[in-house]
Design a protein around this nucleic acid. Sequence first.
DNA 1: AGGAACCCTTGATCCAGATCAGGGCAGGGA
DNA 2: TCCCTGCCCTGATCTGGATCAAGGGTTCCT
Lengths: 262, 262
Amino acid sequence: MTFSVAATAESIAAVPVSIPAPAVVSGSSAATEKGRCAGCSVRSKGLCAALPAEELPELSAASRTINLLSSTPVVLEGAEADSVFTVVSGMLKLYKTLPDGRQQITGFATAGDVIGLAVGEAYAYTAETVTASTVCRAPRSALHRLMERRPAVQARLLAMTSVELSAAQDQILLLGCKTAVERVASFLLALSRRSRPLPDGCPSVFLPMPKVDIGAYLGLRPETLSRVLRKLEDAGAITRLTNDRIRLDDAAALEATATLAA
Amino acid sequence: MTFSVAATAESIAAVPVSIPAPAVVSGSSAATEKGRCAGCSVRSKGLCAALPAEELPELSAASRTINLLSSTPVVLEGAEADSVFTVVSGMLKLYKTLPDGRQQITGFATAGDVIGLAVGEAYAYTAETVTASTVCRAPRSALHRLMERRPAVQARLLAMTSVELSAAQDQILLLGCKTAVERVASFLLALSRRSRPLPDGCPSVFLPMPKVDIGAYLGLRPETLSRVLRKLEDAGAITRLTNDRIRLDDAAALEATATLAA
DNA sequence: AGGAACCCTTGATCCAGATCAGGGCAGGGA
DNA sequence: TCCCTGCCCTGATCTGGATCAAGGGTTCCT
């Protein structure tokens, strides 16, 4: 469910992907029909968590696992929404585009998140990999049939959509009210809540996406983001360990500058 | 479902409310148990549209109709979410507040919209009447029981939540990318799609809420909103008929300035 | 090794919208 | 009737973040 700020994506770095073609499909090929879903790393997450074991064979047959390089589109805004995807690993960005090219990232999706749910016939946003990723594709019709047969799946989908709506409203608050520093502090804290602290106990966040994407998510230019991060670092609140990892040295100070409440 | 921009609220002006106390509850009193819900004006809207006739008696017994003056809070952000409300008539604003008092309006709710659905134990936003309104209150537990018994209700709730999520993402795009003029044009067009055109064929919108609230919804100061409306009026795109009604003389021009796409 | 293409960062300047200030008008109460 | 209060509009000024410009680091390709 595209939790607007999630970061279980730690796994990405640990599993260097090496794929020849831009997209490799591994369906009901090598793995046995039942085994594929049963042994899946996101079996207990997202929608699949609501599935009883006896549904697995049919789901395995209906779905396909796809490996993707980075910067690869998965769904396109406006295209016919005939499939839904579950992120198995990696990270994707979801964004909307204005006619003149301006883009607003509405969220980042990581393992367990569902992509491509649409109200009407067309996808409402574009989803594109930020890092090499693996997603699981299923026909929309299969999901509908599954929901009719299993109210628990529908309940799970409702819960996930509700969480996502709540996150979207938090983002509206952020974009409508907060200053640049407050936005960045809120973002770092939200990410840190979803990731494991460093061995030294300090929370840290993993940012595999380019700075321009973080900016597009927070409604800021990359230059502004860079300046804000420097200011926070000078203030002793954070340390930039590497380009894609930040340690939160003073989470309390961040909370204070984030104006709390989100 | 708090459609971010809805305007079937036309009815409000036509039905001048005159209530003595700030809140008048009319439960299973005068109306018969079955009659209340069966004859309700929002029977065919929102969640109630998914209800079969045989559920009406129980729902009538579990719910209460409440008349409210303007500027009356219905649910409070952070309070225990023990009830859900359906708007019967009038208009409410939904907003989140930062500790220092800044407020972001996340949507306006009109007839048929559902208010107070919460992910956890607490309401995620405050809802307050903008005009005198009538809402129907039901215990959260009653809704849960109803959903378990009737998958169609759950399906309806999922559909409504999905639409709302989509609207929230449009609002994120608006707040993150668009200029002041684009925001106002988008807002007017979104409202006009939900209201009937004037006798002369021109679309028009009804804005019962104060300008400061519209600004708080669009991420703008009331001064800026006022200036933008004047600019649009000078350009011949709109006419301010009264303080709370605007005629869209040139919807095409508005579409163009709204940068489309939302 | 060389270099091309990205990113990221920093500095200088600009501007859309915020903020500050003041005035007009409509509704409501004494 | 008159005053008071709240809302709206408009002008003047300020400023946070955007935009413009440039330099350095890293990765990948040749």
